[in-house]
């Protein structure tokens, strides 16, 4: 991809999705070598690489210098949502985030496949092909970990309940989203996507005997411009090496 002339609202939307993909890929990457079993190490690592690749593709629509743009912006210039900034050192949390994120991500990419910005539509179609594998991985493992009455099912159900409110931040809209929808840059509003995401979770919860909390609401657009405390740690890692000599080729 190459940088294109997006309007401010479209650029903001692309940046929000790029930063979310970047940070989820960064979190997934920390699990290499310490997943519950070797096959999962290999699978989760592949997913991390894919998510980083999607972030690169989106950043390339915005800049000619992906690495410096992705890593060296000031915190207030990121547009990530709160959910992808959270540090999750335990596997149950990391996996449930992966599962919830994939379900949300499918809706977010799908809403871009018919975008009036051809480069964005093309990227969404390409990403969606890879995401199908991610979803299959998440859903299959989730199914095997939620046999009713097992310790694993209880751990997962508890984590899902803990996560849903925060995960709704994946549907935090950007400023001027209504214009983007009207112009066909994105097919549907974040609120409409959240409705679908929640309906899907409801179906899953009924099938697995899990009680969910009330439907969460997504924060308003201003939340995309503020960072959580955990972001400081994540950003510290992202910039640890490149900031030693920002002009160098690493």
């Amino acid at each position: 991809m190459t940088r294109i002339d997006l309007g401010p609202a479209a650029a903001e939307h692309v940046l929000a999705l790029a930063d979310d993909e970047h940070l989820i890929g960064a979190h997934h990457s920390t699990w290499i070598g310490v997943c519950p079993f070797l096959e999962e190490d290999l699978a989760f690592c592949s997913i991390a690489q894919d998510e980083l690749g999607h972030a690169i593709g989106l950043y390339e629509l915005l800049t000619d210098d992906v690495d410096r743009f992705a890593l060296l912006r000031a915190p207030e210039e990121y547009r990530s949502c709160a959910y992808v900034e959270r540090l999750m050192p335990g596997w149950a949390d990391a996996f449930v985030r992966h599962w919830l994120y994939e379900r949300a991500e499918q809706l977010r990419w799908d809403a871009l496949t018919t975008s009036t910005v051809p480069e964005l539509a093309a990227l969404a179609l390409a990403a969606d092909r890879e995401e199908a594998f991610h979803r299959r991985h998440a859903e299959q493992l989730m199914e095997r970990l939620t046999t009713p009455g097992t310790q694993a099912a209880a751990i997962i159900a508890s984590a899902v309940n803990d996560h849903v409110a925060s995960a709704a931040s994946l549907f935090t809209p950007v400023t001027d989203e209504a214009t983007l929808v009207a112009d066909g840059v994105v097919a549907r509003s974040a609120e409409a996507l959240l409705d679908d995401w929640w309906a899907g979770l409801g179906t899953w919860a009924v099938a697995h005997g899990v009680d969910l909390p009330p439907r969460p609401t997504a924060p308003g657009p201003a939340a995309r411009r503020s960072r959580t405390d955990d972001f400081t740690t994540v950003h510290g890692d992202l910039t640890a090496v490149i900031s030693l000599d920002p002009t160098a080729v690493w």
């Binding site: 970047h22 960064a26 990457s29 980083l52 690749g53 690169i56 992906v66 992202l238 640890a240 690493w250």
Partner: peptide, 15 residues
């Protein structure tokens, strides 16, 4: 890996 000074570098070291 979390501190890789580039996104493609992170992908490469992950791979």
């Amino acid at each position: 890996i979390p501190k890789a000074p580039g996104l493609r570098l992170k992908q490469i070291f992950l791979a």
